[in-house]
Write a protein that binds this DNA or RNA. Sequence first.
RNA 1: CGGGACGUGGCGCAGCUCGGUAGCGCACCUGCUUUGGGAGCAGGGGGUCGUGGGUUCAAAUCCCGCCGUCCCGACCA
Length: 569
Amino acid sequence: MRWSNLFIPTLRDAPADAEAASHKLLVRGGFIRQLHAGHYSLLPLGLKVHDKVAAIVRDEMNSIGAQEFLLPAMHPAAIWRESGRWEVMGDEMFRLQDRKGSDLALGMTHEEVFTSLALEISSYKALPQIWYQIQTKFRDEPRPKSGLLRVREFAMKDSYSFDLTPEGLDRNFDLHHEAYVKIFDRLSLPAMPVEASSGAMGGSGSTEFMVPSDAGEDDVVRCPTGDYAANSERATSTLPAISDRTDQTELSRFPTPGVRTIAALEEIEGGAPSVHQIKTMVMVLDGEITLALVRGDHQLNIQKLIDATGAIDVRPATPEETIEHLGASPGSLGAVGVEGLRIVADDQLRSRSGLTTGANSDDWHYRGVSVDRDIAVDQWADLRDVNSGEACPSCGAPLEMVRCIESGHIFKLGSKYAEALGANVLDPDGKNVPLLMGSYGIGIGRAVAAIAETHHDDRGLIWPVAVAPYEVVVTIVNIKDEASMSTAEQIYADLRSRGIDVLLDDRKARAGVKFADAELIGIPHRITIGPKTLAEGDVEHTERADGVTNLVAVGSVAEQVSAAIAAAR
RNA sequence: CGGGACGUGGCGCAGCUCGGUAGCGCACCUGCUUUGGGAGCAGGGGGUCGUGGGUUCAAAUCCCGCCGUCCCGACCA
């Protein structure tokens, strides 16, 4: 393509409200433009990258035997009601009505619709099946941000596996895991698989593919030895055992005037170190007041509480609710002797004694609390945040915390959706059993942004060859020089005939502008044609990644550059 | 949803305090000069100042409402 005919609106200044590097550069380079919050137009350059990413994803899906579909973006409410997710998805689902007043939703994922098609699988003999699509999803995110990284409308590759047995599901899950490793490798994204929370998807297990980046929104806890990595919503660590205080075994109430915090309770005469305190958080789980207990020096992880209890809507109680149910304000709360409220406690409190906690009366606390004796715990669970430096649960090495972009997520769903929608098959014994499903997603636009986020310098983007909008740019320093023009045309034609995606910069512009633009939009190879070197029969070949320039004879440059590209694809 | 900030040609900004009918840089068009790292000079086109109302002889500017966008947090497959 000839640059002079293309719409590549590069900008010298980034939009003032762009923060993330990928956001600034994709806008400046003329790849994307915002229509409104969370909705971006892909310009020709942006679409080319998007298409190349999608093609790689498609290629790897096809190679594990997945079959491509294309499902509607707009769904009837009924199918979401059947799975129970019409309510579960809450405000995150875009909803509308048609002229007849029927409720509709814009699809945020496609378990329901794919499962409805799976109703036609009636025999185990047709299994396994892997179905996928690359299609637009709509999610009414509370806060779209960072350009393409978190949006409300985006193309996603979503695939679904159907199996008779858990072993079959495991196999399809593993196939996807391997395919994802290959995809991210081809995209030059350093994605690491980590244990994840399954959230609203449900199911028995899930793995996220996380790309380390400050622009990300998730924290991954990982062991530097490489034997453990998990989303902080799921991570655990090994903590040193605490010896309970033996000087306080009798439950007793004592005055703590003005004490409202863990720290203050540590300081006060007769108080206790935070590891010997119980922190009592009053939460509302689907409308039910619930006490969540963690050790005094620990932080409650709300996602863990959600996962442990299966609650959908979780929020802290208001001060009014707290006083109504416990009779005291935050700072003096505790679970000792509490009846009629659900109590969920962190595993680290199991069998602890000699503890100090609020007495549900302002300015009073208990000491000598024995969890087993004094607190009616309904459920035990891992509820606490892991901190960096704590010991790896596998090898004991100090854990580190890494900020990441969630670039893929694979789930073992089990029979949840098949049961809800009645997707059963006959097994070899002639018995009707629900299908076992897996669900697997990669956001295409987010992958584009993640690549931009991890492949740029102060001059602009540096696309890997596999996804670059063009593989080579032929830059003509001076279009008035006839020798330059004819040489450029010849090299351009030669590269095209070799199947290279090449951009001819034939614009009437100064060399500096062309160089700056080529670097901004991140074309991996540049062939510069100017009178200076042409006099010697040479052109320049520059690689965007390292900036190194070599002189190459006119007659061999096309062959040499296309060989380098073929090797990098 | 809580906190903060901002809406002025395509992009970046000034003007607002102290009302007088919109300006600068980049980009764009024309001409001349220039031509290997974002050229120079001259001329030119383009803006309901987010929106509705109010105050006023007069509103980008003051007052009120609404809408939108961004950032932090909460939330989020």
